[in-house]
Design a protein around this nucleic acid. Structure first.
Length: 415
DNA sequence: TCTGGGGTCCTAGGACCC
DNA sequence: TCTGGGGTCCTAGGACCC
């Protein structure tokens, strides 16, 4: 019998912002941007949630529901730092810890009883330890599977601990809305409801074949669980280190839709640079390059190309990206552009059609560029067209933030 | 309701190969 | 030519999560 914990931070982004500005405490707070910006709510305080505000909701809608709310920008660095502190605490409780995202983690607590006591006692100790170390609250679900632990941490919110005693999984799950199951979103919920399935328990009465055909493996496994069977496979994968990323991407939504070629081109180059930069940080190379276009009516298209060799070089990525863009753009105003690196590999592979001398020069240049960015900040160094996007974006977002006289731009090496 | 940005995983069709 | 079946790669789209 296994014992898993799922730990989930309570209103994480909001709580971190409160650490930096205690005056926010208890007030309706919305993290994600200003009330009149294009964007969505990243997190809402419990006080704001009372007005119907929730994450993923457009900021403008949140403002209509709760005009007195305090709207603040997110600070990713702060959340990453707090997440690290939480992780450090978790490691003291089990060697098998996996951060599932910035604010949640799974712990395999199997066989730790001698050290930490029975599951519920250990969970409370962890609860307190996180609070003491970070001044942040969390909720913890304890169960014999990761899936049930995750669902129970959600039921424990806020600031609670909930243990589903082995054997009681079915009784716990049966009365819950199917939407509570991770992986069941709006669409699947609607499809399930259309079949008369509203509660997890309703899944148990359905024919297995139909379940598998219409909803896939997860539904079959869940029906097993909801019947009290210890169906494992899909949600009980081992807890281990999160491996290398499968894709690296950046996208940008313009504050005003644009059909200006110079602005679009510059943005594509800047996004390509950001992707290439992070590929180098991870020592990865992308074999497939993808772009995303979104027009004013929100219609969205992706176009991908697989290269003859994997790359982490700005210019190679940008060349493919711009080509893809100009072959597919209708000419209508654009709302969003995205650049993706996928099919990531540890090296560029065998074939490389560019001559070694030119590649070597690029490498040297990029190393220097990365070092400068490290030193002076990401906005300071950009190659050619990317520069214009940086300037444009800064001027647009904050007119006072005009670039200095010495932007330290680097010219690419000549071929 | 006028809808971000970072991801993962799945499906499905066509090309291509044996 | 009326035409098999499996495996793999590639592309596009979509559901979902935080």
């Amino acid at each position: 019998m296994k014992t898993y914990f799922h730990l989930d931070m309570d209103a994480f982004f909001v709580s971190v912002e409160e650490l930096f500005d205690p005056s926010l405490k208890g007030k309706p707070v919305v993290v994600g941007g200003r009330a009149n910006e294009r964007g969505v709510v990243s997190a809402a305080s419990y006080a704001a949630r009372k007005f119907g505000v929730h994450s993923a909701m457009p900021l403008r809608t949140a403002y209509k529901l709760c005009p007195q709310a305090i709207f603040v920008d997110g600070h990713r660095e702060r959340y990453i730092e707090c997440s690290r502190q939480v992780f450090a605490v978790l490691q003291k409780f089990s060697p098998r810890v996996e951060m599932a995202s910035i604010d949640e983690a799974y712990l395999d607590m199997t066989g730790t009883e001698r050290l930490h006591g029975p599951p519920l006692a250990a969970a409370h100790a962890l609860h307190n330890a996180v609070r003491t170390a970070t001044n942040l609250n969390c909720s913890i679900g304890v169960a014999s599977s990761r899936l049930v632990a995750k669902i129970s941490s959600d039921q424990a919110k806020p600031h609670g601990v909930l243990w589903i005693i082995p054997g009681q999984e079915a009784r716990f799950l049966a009365p819950l809305d199917v939407r509570k199951i991770p992986g069941v979103g709006k669409v699947t919920e609607k499809n399930l409801n259309a079949q008369g399935i509203r509660k997890v328990g309703d899944l148990t009465v359905l024919d297995e074949k139909l379940l598998l055909e219409q909803f896939g493996n997860w539904a079959l496994a869940l029906a097993g669980k909801a019947r009290g069977e210890d169906a494992g496979a899909w949600f009980d994968s081992e807890i281990g280190e999160n491996g290398d990323p499968k894709s690296i991407s950046h996208e940008h939504t313009f504050s005003v839709d644009t059909a200006e070629i110079a602005a679009l081109d510059a943005t594509l180059v800047r996004l390509s640079e950001m992707v290439a930069r992070r590929l180098r940080d991870h020592h990865l190379y992308a074999r497939t390059v993808q772009i995303k276009l979104r027009y004013s009516d929100f219609s969205t298209f992706t176009r991908a190309r697989t290269l003859d060799h994997a790359t982490q070089i700005d210019a190679e990525l940008a060349a493919a990206v711009r080509d893809l863009f100009h072959k597919n753009w209708t000419g209508k105003p654009i709302r969003l552009l995205g650049v993706y690196g996928q099919s990531l590999e540890g090296s560029e592979g065998q074939t490389n059609l560019l001559d070694e001398g030119a590649i070597g020069k690029w490498r040297k240049t990029l190393r220097a560029v990365d070092q400068m960015r490290e030193k002076f900040g990401d906005g300071t160094v950009s190659l050619a067209a990317g520069m214009k996007a940086n300037l444009r974006a800064r001027v647009h977002d904050n007119p006072e933030n005009l670039p200095g006289k010495d932007p330290r731009a680097k010219d690419p090496p000549e071929n």
